[in-house]
C-alpha cells in the first residue's frame, strides 16, 4: 500500500489502482460485518433443523446433513415450560392477546394527547408534556413493587388485562411524544381556519388531523408492538403460569433444568418468539428505524 501512495501524485494509473484496491477492501469489510450480524441467525436456524444427535456430533456452523422439523413441532406444541408441556403456542397466543389491545389503546391515547399538546395549548400543558416525557426514562424497577400491589388491589394481578394496563400506562409517554412531534409540523393556520368555519375540538381532530396521521400511526404502532412483544420485565413480574407472554415462556423453556438439553428445540422456540417482530421489521423497516430514531434522538 505504502509504495503506491508515495508515488501516486501525478500518476493517474497508480491512483486508479489504489482506488480500486480501497474499494475492494471496503466491500470486503462490509461483507465481513454482514456475516457477523447474520451469524447468530444462521446458527439458530441451522441448529433448529438438526437432530440432537447431529448437534452433538457435528459442528455449530455446519449446515444440517438431514433437515428435520421435529424440533419446530416440539417447540410449538410440546416443549416444557416448567411443569406445563404445551410448547410456546399458548404463550404466543397470550402475547397476541396482550399486544393488540395494548398497542391500539396506547396509540389512540397518544394521538389525542399529542393533538392537545401540539395545538390546544393551555397554561401548564407544557409542564404536563415534560412530566410525561421524563416518565419515559425511569427504570421500570422503580415502579415494579407498587404496581404489583396496585394490580392486586384492582383484581388484575396475574391477568392479561393487568399486563395490558401496565403496557398502556408506561407506553403513554412515548406515544404522546411521537404524535406531538408530528402534529407540531401541521400549520396552526389550518386549525384556526377550521375554527372560524365552526369546527370544534373533535371535528378538527377527526377530519383534519386523523387523515394526515397515517405515517405517524404506522411508526407508533410498530414501535409499541416491538416494545410490548419483546417485553420481559413486566411479563415476568406481573403474570402467572397461564398468562405468561412468549418471551417469558421462551426463557422458561431454555432454562428448564429437567431432562436432556434440547438445543434444537430452544432455537426453534427462539425463532418463533422472534418471528412477529422480525416480520414487521422486514416489511416496514423504514418506519421501524424512524420510530427508533424519533424515540431516542428527540426523546
Amino acid at each position: 500500500m505504502t509504495d503506491i501512495t508515495s508515488e501516486n501524485t501525478g500518476r493517474p494509473l497508480a491512483h486508479a489502482v489504489r482506488n480500486i484496491l480501497l474499494r475492494w477492501l471496503l466491500l470486503a469489510l462490509l461483507g465481513l460485518f454482514a456475516l457477523y450480524y447474520l451469524m447468530p441467525l444462521f446458527v439458530m436456524l441451522t441448529t433448529s433443523l438438526k437432530s440432537l444427535e447431529e448437534i452433538r456430533t457435528g459442528s455449530l456452523v455446519a449446515l444440517p446433513r438431514e433437515v428435520t422439523f421435529d424440533a419446530w413441532a416440539k417447540a410449538w406444541s410440546g416443549a416444557c415450560t416448567g411443569i406445563q408441556c404445551e410448547g410456546v403456542r399458548p404463550f404466543f397466543w397470550n402475547s397476541i392477546l396482550l399486544a393488540v389491545p395494548a398497542v391500539f389503546l396506547s396509540t389512540l391515547f397518544g394521538a389525542v394527547n399529542g393533538y392537545v399538546i401540539a395545538h390546544w395549548r393551555f397554561r401548564g400543558s407544557n409542564l404536563i408534556f415534560s412530566l410525561m416525557l421524563f416518565g419515559c426514562f425511569i427504570p421500570f424497577q422503580v415502579v415494579l413493587l407498587p404496581m404489583a400491589r396496585v394490580l392486586g388491589i384492582m383484581g388484575l394481578a396475574g391477568t392479561i388485562p393487568g399486563l395490558i394496563f401496565v403496557h398502556v400506562v408506561y407506553g403513554l409517554g412515548f406515544t404522546t411524544l411521537f404524535f406531538r412531534n408530528y402534529y407540531v409540523t401541521i400549520p396552526q393556520e389550518l386549525v384556526k381556519a377550521a375554527k372560524i368555519d365552526g369546527a370544534g375540538f373533535f371535528r378538527i381532530f377527526w377530519s383534519i388531523f386523523l387523515p394526515l396521521s397515517l405515517p405517524i400511526v404506522v411508526v407508533t404502532v410498530i414501535w409499541q408492538f416491538t416494545q410490548i412483544w419483546n417485553d420481559f420485565l413486566f411479563g415476568v413480574s406481573f403474570s402467572q403460569s397461564g398468562t405468561q407472554p412468549v418471551t417469558v415462556a421462551l426463557n422458561n423453556i431454555v432454562n428448564s433444568t429437567t431432562g436432556v438439553k434440547e438445543y434444537n428445540v430452544d432455537m426453534a422456540a427462539a425463532i418463533i418468539a422472534a418471528l412477529p417482530t422480525m416480520l414487521v421489521y422486514v416489511i416496514a423497516g423504514k418506519y421501524f428505524i424512524r420510530g427508533l430514531t424519533a424515540g431516542s434522538v428527540k426523546g
Binding site: 450480524y37 451469524m39 447468530p40 441467525l41 446458527v43 439458530m44 441448529t47 455449530l60 416491538t226 412483544w229 419483546n230 417485553d231 420481559f232 418471551t247 421462551l250 426463557n251 431454555v254 438445543y263 430452544d266 432455537m267 422456540a269 427462539a270 425463532i271 418468539a273 422472534a274 417482530t277 422480525m278 414487521v280 421489521y281 421501524f288 427508533l292
Partner: peptide, 17 residues
C-alpha cells in the same frame, strides 16, 4: 435487524453460540 429482536432471543442465541 438485531434491534427488532427481544433480548431474550438474543440471549438464547448467544448462550448457545
Amino acid at each position: 435487524y438485531p434491534m427488532a429482536l427481544s433480548l431474550i432471543v438474543t440471549g438464547t442465541a448467544w448462550k448457545w453460540i
